[in-house]
Amino acid sequence: MSESQQKQSPYPVIHALECKACNRCIIECPKKVLEMGTVLNERGFLYAVYKGEGCNGCGNCYYTCPEPNAVEVHIPKKAKQEA
């Protein structure tokens, strides 16, 4: 993720190792920007991946994920950007 992208738009970080491929984040994403990957992680699960753009920072994937360490959502602060 580049520095400019971080500043411009929200994005999810999915830690591949922690994902158990339950599919919940993919179902709950309103922008449909998550998808199930095609390779297994070290623990033997497929894992969700971000398509790279379109995240609106709603946080659904974070909240619906049962794994505490699997998903983060980074959301730029609007006020700071304007300032």
Binding site: G59, Y63, N69, V71, E72, V73, I75, P76
Partner: peptide, 8 residues
């Protein structure tokens, strides 16, 4: 300051 992070 610039980023809100939803995480554990």
């Amino acid at each position: 300051k610039n980023m809100t992070v939803l995480k554990r």
